[in-house]
Design a protein around this nucleic acid. Structure first.
Length: 827
DNA sequence: GTTAGGG
DNA sequence: CCCTAAC
C-alpha cells in the first residue's frame, strides 16, 4: 500500500506530468525473491475459514474462497474436495512490478469487505473466469485522459454499481476506483463446488467517467450498489464477482494510510504486503477443513467482499495483462494487509463485541438479517471500533490469528465468534436482496417453521440500530410551534435552544423533522392522522406559521412591483369583474355577492360556542381585528409574531394572518405575479389583492366572532397605498375594499423609507425602491383614520413591541366587551 | 456544526 | 428517525 499522499497526487490532482520516478522506484524495488513467509493469516483467509467452519458444521456443505490473486490456489488446495480446473497461479504472475511497466501508486482505502453468507448451498459450474477480468477492459480516451472503466458484468441484475478506472493521458497512472466484491461461494456437498471470485473490469461509457477523487465519482461510489438486489438465483449469477464500490470516505481512508505509511517506504510496504498475500496462499491450505464444529444450525456463505477503492498508478502504455496483474496485486495487497472484521447491522457498525446477537439485532427472525454486513477494516482503526473489552471478539485480532488459533477460539467461544454457529438457532432463510445485504442466515432444517420475533426483540433490534422513537407530546408540539412562530423555520438550532434546551433527546434536526411532519399532518385530513392527536388549534398554528415563514422567504424579491405601465391602464373595473368571474370562478364569487351577514356563524363555531357558553350563545367576547401596516422592512412581520405570542400568553386566542394569502386560488395568481411568472397590469393585480381579502372575509368574521383575535399583516391599506403609489387613483383603489371588515385597530409601524432601506433587502434597486416606498408612505398617510395607531418603528424591537402590546391589549379588551365590528370605508 | 431535503 | 449534500 502506498500512502494517501500518493493517492492525492495522482488521483486527485493528476499533475500534468505524472512523476515517473515514483513508479520506477517501485518497480525497481519489488522482487519476487523478497517475498517471505508471513505468519499472519490474511483476513479473507479467516473469513473463509470461519465460513467454512459454519458450513462444515452442517456437515453438508463447504465453502471456498476465491480471490483475484489466489483463487486457484485456494480453491484447489484448501478445499480438496472440490475439483477445479483452475490452475494455481504462480507468484510471479501476480507481481505487478515484474515484466510490466505498471507501478502501483497506492491503495487508498481500507478494505471494506462485504460478506454474504448464504443460507443455501449454491451450485454452479466451476467457472474459471478469474482472469477474464482484463478481457473487457478497454481504455478509451476521454477528454485527454484514458479512462478505464471497471464494471462488473451483469451489473444490471446484481444492482452493482460500477467502479472506474482512469488513466490520465500523461500516463501517470491508473486508479481503480473500486474493486469491490470478492465473492466466495459455498456449496453443498453433493454439488459441484466452484467458488471463485474475480474482479471484472469492463469498459463503460467513457463519457461519464469522472476523475478519481472527483466528486462525481464519490457520488457514484456512494450509492448503494446492492440496491438493485443481488440474486444468486439468477442465471449465471454465480459469476457475480461484481465490482463494488465502497462507501468509506476518502478521509477515513487517508487516515488509515497515514498510519501505515508514516515511516515505511511505499516500496517496502508493497513488498511486504505482497509477501503476506503470497503467504496467505500457502497458509490457507488445510486448516479450513479442520473447522468443523458439531452443532451448527446455520450455514453461512460469504458471498462477497467489497473492496473499497484502489488507486493504482499505471503507465498508459501498460498492457491489459499487466493491468490485470495490477488489479490482482492490488486486491491481494489489500486483503493481506492486517485487517479485522467489522460487523454492521442495518448499516450500523456494531462495536460492542460483547453484545449478544439479540442485543445487536441479529435474531433468528430474518427481518433484519438482510442488512447484515461484514466488513474488513484496517487494524489501525481497531481502537475506535473495538469494544472496551479487548477479549470479546474472536476476530479482533483477525490478522494475527493463525488458522489454528482461529479454530481454537471458534470452538471455545462460539457465542462470541463472528459467525456463532450455535447462536443462530433456526434461522429462517433470509432474502439477500436489497440494501447492503451480505449475510443471510439460514436454518439448517428448511422445514422448520419460521419464528416470530417478539416485540421485545424487535425493540432491541431497533435500539441497536436507531434511536428510540419518542413521539412528541402535545406539550412539546406546542413548544415547538411557539418557537417556530417566533423564530421561523430555518433556525432550528435556535428553536432547539429556546424551546428544547433541556431535551437532550431532541436535536434540532429532530425538531425540524417534527415540524415537517406537523405541517404534513396539518394538511391531511384528521382521519389520516396517526398517533397522539394534535389539537387542531395547534395544527392551524402550524399551518399559519408555515405559510407565514415560507412566504417570508420568498418575499424579499417579490413584493409589489413598482413598474408602472400606463399603456395597460385601459381595463375597466367592470371588465375586470367579468374577467375575474370567469378566470377565478367560485373563489371570486364573494366579490360579486353581497357580504354575508355578520351574524353568520359556521356550524362548528356555533357548536363550539354552545359548548363553552351553553345558554349564552352570542355572549362570547369577540376577538379584535388588528391590522399591522407599514413600509417594507418596517418590522411588521417581526412584531406580528411577537404580538401573537404576547396575546396568546395573555390568554387571548390569536391567529396571525397575512395578506396576500397565497394559499387561496387568488393567492396563487398573486404569487405567480409576484414571482414574475405572470404579467398583469396594475389594476388587475390590485383587484386580485382585493379579491384575496374578500376570499378570507367570511372566515375572518367567523374567527372574530368566535373569539379569536386576528393579527393581520397587511390589509386593504397596503393594497390601496401600493396601487396608488403605482399611479392608480386612490378612490378607485379603495372601491373594491369597501365592505371588508374594518380593523379595530391599525398599527402603523412608522419608519422613513431611507431608514427602512438601511435595514437591507432592497438590493440593487435600492434607490428606486426608496423612492417608491416614499410614495407609498405618503398614501398611507392619506388613509389614516381614527383606528390608526402610529408606532415609531425606529426604536428598538423591544420598545416597539411594548408599545404595540399596550395598544392592542386595550383594543382587545374593548372588543371583548362588546365593541361591534364595522365595515371598511362603507359609510 | 447547521441547514435543507430526500428517504 | 436516518442519511447526506452543501455550506
Amino acid at each position: 500500500m502506498v500512502s494517501h499522499k500518493c493517492v492525492e497526487e495522482f488521483s486527485l490532482q493528476f499533475p500534468a506530468n505524472a512523476r515517473a520516478p515514483r513508479s520506477a522506484r517501485k518497480k525497481r524495488s519489488f522482487k519476487k525473491e523478497e517475498i517471505t513467509e508471513n505468519d499472519k493469516t490474511c483476513a479473507i483467509d479467516l473469513l473463509a475459514t470461519v465460513a467454512e467452519n459454519l458450513l462444515s458444521e452442517t456437515g453438508s456443505s463447504h465453502m471456498s474462497i476465491d480471490k483475484p490473486v489466489e483463487d486457484h490456489c485456494l480453491v484447489k488446495e484448501e478445499f480438496p474436495v472440490e475439483d477445479k480446473p483452475l490452475k494455481p497461479a504462480t507468484l510471479p504472475e501476480f507481481n505487478p512490478y515484474q515484466g510490466s511497466s505498471m507501478s502501483p501508486c497506492g491503495f487508498s482505502s481500507v478494505i471494506n469487505g462485504k460478506v454474504e453468507i448464504e443460507a443455501e448451498g449454491f451450485s454452479h459450474s466451476g467457472g474459471i473466469d478469474s482472469c477474464q477480468a482484463g478481457q473487457d477492459l478497454k481504455p478509451s480516451v476521454d477528454g485527454g485522459a484514458v479512462v478505464l472503466d471497471a464494471r462488473p458484468n451483469g451489473v444490471g441484475s446484481l444492482g452493482g454499481s460500477s467502479s472506474r478506472t482512469k488513466v490520465p493521458s500523461m500516463g501517470a497512472g491508473v486508479s481503480l476506483g473500486a474493486l469491490d466484491d470478492v465473492h466466495m461461494f459455498s456449496r453443498d456437498d453433493d454439488e459441484n463446488f466452484s467458488g471463485y471470485i474475480c474482479p471484472r473490469v469492463t469498459k463503460k461509457s467513457p463519457r461519464s467517467v469522472p476523475r478519481v477523487g472527483d466528486r462525481r465519482i464519490r457520488k457514484i461510489l456512494a450509492s448503494r450498489h446492492w440496491k438493485g438486489g443481488s440474486r444468486h438465483s439468477e442465471a449465471k449469477s454465480w459469476r457475480n464477482y461484481y465490482l463494488h464500490h465502497q462507501r468509506s470516505y476518502p478521509i477515513k481512508k487517508r487516515k488509515y494510510f497515514e498510519h501505515i505509511s508514516d515511516s515505511v517506504s511505499d516500496d517496502y510496504r508493497l513488498r511486504s504486503k505482497m509477501q503476506r498475500g503470497s503467504r496467505a496462499v500457502s497458509t490457507m491450505k488445510g486448516p479450513g477443513a479442520s473447522f468443523v464444529s458439531s452443532d451448527s444450525h446455520v450455514r453461512l456463505r460469504i458471498k462477497s467482499f467489497r473492496v473499497p477503492e484502489l488507486f493504482v498508478e499505471i503507465p498508459e502504455t501498460a498492457t491489459v495483462g499487466s493491468l490485470k496483474r495490477m488489479v490482482m496485486e492490488a486486491v491481494s495487497t489489500l486483503l493481506s494487509d492486517g485487517h479485522r472484521v467489522g460487523l454492521m447491522v442495518q448499516g450500523k457498525k456494531v462495536r460492542d463485541d460483547n453484545k449478544t446477537l439479540h442485543q445487536t439485532g441479529i435474531s433468528q427472525d430474518n427481518t433484519h438479517l438482510d442488512s447484515l454486513d461484514f466488513s474488513l477494516e484496517p487494524s489501525s482503526e481497531a481502537p475506535h471500533l473495538l469494544s472496551s473489552n479487548p477479549s470479546g471478539h474472536v476476530c479482533e485480532e483477525l490478522p494475527m490469528c493463525h488458522a489454528s488459533d482461529m479454530d481454537t477460539l471458534f470452538k471455545s467461544e462460539p457465542d462470541l465468534a463472528l459467525f456463532p454457529s450455535g447462536s443462530f438457532d433456526k434461522e429462517t432463510a433470509a432474502d439477500d436482496s436489497k440494501a447492503l445485504v451480505h449475510a443471510a442466515l439460514t436454518e439448517l432444517s428448511p422445514h422448520q417453521p419460521p419464528r416470530h420475533k417478539s416485540n421485545k426483540q424487535q425493540q432491541q433490534q431497533q435500539t441497536a440500530q436507531r434511536r428510540m422513537r419518542r413521539p412528541f407530546s402535545v406539550t412539546e408540539v406546542e413548544a415547538l410551534v411557539q418557537a417556530v412562530e417566533k423564530l421561523g423555520t430555518g433556525r432550528w438550532r435556535d428553536v432547539k435552544h429556546s424551546a428544547f434546551e433541556d431535551a437532550d433527546h431532541r436535536t434540532y434536526v429532530d425538531l425540524k423533522d417534527k415540524w415537517k411532519t406537523l405541517v404534513h399532518t396539518a394538511k391531511i385530513s384528521p382521519q389520516q392522522r396517526r398517533g397522539e392527536p394534535v389539537p387542531q388549534e395547534l395544527l392551524n398554528r402550524v399551518l399559519n406559521a408555515h405559510g407565514y415563514w415560507s412566504q417570508q422567504h420568498m418575499e424579499t424579491l417579490a413584493l409589489p412591483k413598482p413598474d408602472y405601465n400606463p399603456a395597460t391602464f385601459h381595463t375597466t373595473w367592470t371588465n375586470l369583474l367579468l374577467m375575474f368571474r370567469t378566470s377565478i370562478g367560485s373563489s371570486f364569487r364573494a366579490l360579486a355577492l353581497p357580504p354575508r351577514s355578520f351574524n353568520y356563524l359556521s356550524r362548528s363555531s356555533v357548536r363550539m360556542e354552545n359548548l363553552t357558553f351553553s345558554s349564552e350563545a352570542g355572549a362570547k367576547p369577540r376577538g379584535a381585528l388588528i391590522v399591522v401596516e407599514g413600509l417594507d422592512r418596517s418590522g411588521k412581520s417581526t412584531q406580528c409574531v411577537k404580538l401573537r405570542s404576547f396575546l396568546e400568553s395573555s390568554g387571548h386566542p390569536t391567529e396571525l394572518w397575512r395578506f396576500p394569502d397565497r394559499e387561496t386560488s387568488v393567492g396563487q395568481m398573486i404569487s405567480a405575479y409576484l414571482s414574475n411568472k405572470s404579467q398583469l397590469d396594475d389594476r388587475t393585480i390590485h383587484l386580485l389583492f382585493s379579491a384575496n381579502r374578500w376570499e378570507k372575509r367570511s372566515l375572518m368574521e367567523e374567527k372574530l366572532k368566535g373569539g379569536t383575535t386576528l393579527i393581520v399583516d397587511r390589509y386593504s391599506y397596503s393594497g390601496v397605498a401600493f396601487s396608488s403609489a403605482k399611479g392608480l387613483g386612490i378612490e378607485w383603489c379603495k372601491a373594491p375594499e369597501v365592505g371588508l371588515l374594518a380593523p379595530d385597530s391599525v398599527l402603523y409601524l412608522d419608519i422613513s423609507p431611507e431608514r427602512a432601506a438601511e435595514r437591507g433587502g432592497y438590493g440593487d434597486e435600492r434607490y428606486e425602491r426608496v423612492d417608491f416606498q416614499r410614495k407609498v408612505s405618503e398614501f398611507y398617510q392619506t388613509l389614516r383614520d381614527s383606528s390608526w395607531k402610529i408606532i415609531d418603528a425606529g426604536g428598538t424591537m423591544e420598545e416597539v413591541e411594548k408599545k404595540i402590546q399596550q395598544v392592542v391589549l386595550d383594543k382587545v379588551k374593548e372588543c371583548a366587551q362588546g365593541k361591534s365590528l364595522s365595515l371598511l370605508w362603507s359609510s
